[in-house]
Amino acid sequence: MSQLALVIDLNVCVGCHACVTSCKEWNTSGTAGYMSDDRPYGEDPTGTFFNRVQTFEIGEYPNTDTVHFPKSCLHCEDPPCVPVCPTGASYKRPEDGIVLVDYDKCIGCKYCSWACPYGVRELDEHQKVMKKCTLCVDRIYDQSLPEAERKPACVMACPTSARLFGDVHDPESEVSIAIRESGGFALMPEWGTHPANHYLPRRKTQITIHKDELVRADNPLKKEGKLPKPDINEPSLDDVTSW
């Protein structure tokens, strides 16, 4: 049994919202119908999105770190949103673990959105059914697309390759290796939802400098600073170059 999922690298995401717009573009044009957009250029815009990019600041000025945080349905392995649905419109596909909503069955009671701790389900204000990320289920199996394009629209759009897509149950998949080797973590592990999507943490490239490395050992005069220029006629270290 496979479990398709996204792995999002917070170290790489630059917060450009390309995934948000390409997600909306792909999914609003699909057979499942449009995704509402009200007053998009007005004073109080609102609409349905499967994916949002949020921004958080870690720490206190001046020692801050900005984290851009894309958030969509995590396709939990133990999804609390599914058993609460009274109609069976919300379901998890056994074959690939994608959590989907059947828009023809959904009665728009919103109960599943209450039962998702991550706030990734949005009721469409016009179609009055619950919507959420489908992992582009209408794209990833489409034989008419070239193999390399059978990926969710957000993954295709990401300019920094911060989004990886694959089967997290296959230990040798790109996503499994990334989770395993780059410290992948799940959101709100306290609720036991076992999200399939994982995030890779911010990682800083650092070198360790020991104190004695700050002082040159071969410095008999104990004077720091630029060395005096040797005379042009003096031999240089390699006898070739000269100043």
């Binding site: 919202h17 948000v20 007053r39 109080d44 815009p45 609102t46 609409g47 349905t48 999105f49 949002r52 990019v53 949020q54 921004t55 958080f56 600041e57 870690i58 720490g59 206190e60 900005t66 984290v67 958030k71 959105s113 389900r121 949005e122 009721l123 204000e125 973590f185 799940a186 959101l187 995030y199 943490p201 911010r202």
Partner: peptide, 19 residues
């Protein structure tokens, strides 16, 4: 998933309201 005692949200990804 960031372990820090001071985290502030700077943007929720939308300017108007949402569901």
């Amino acid at each position: 998933g960031v372990r820090h005692s001071k985290i502030t949200q700077k943007s929720q990804g939308l300017m108007g309201g949402s569901f």
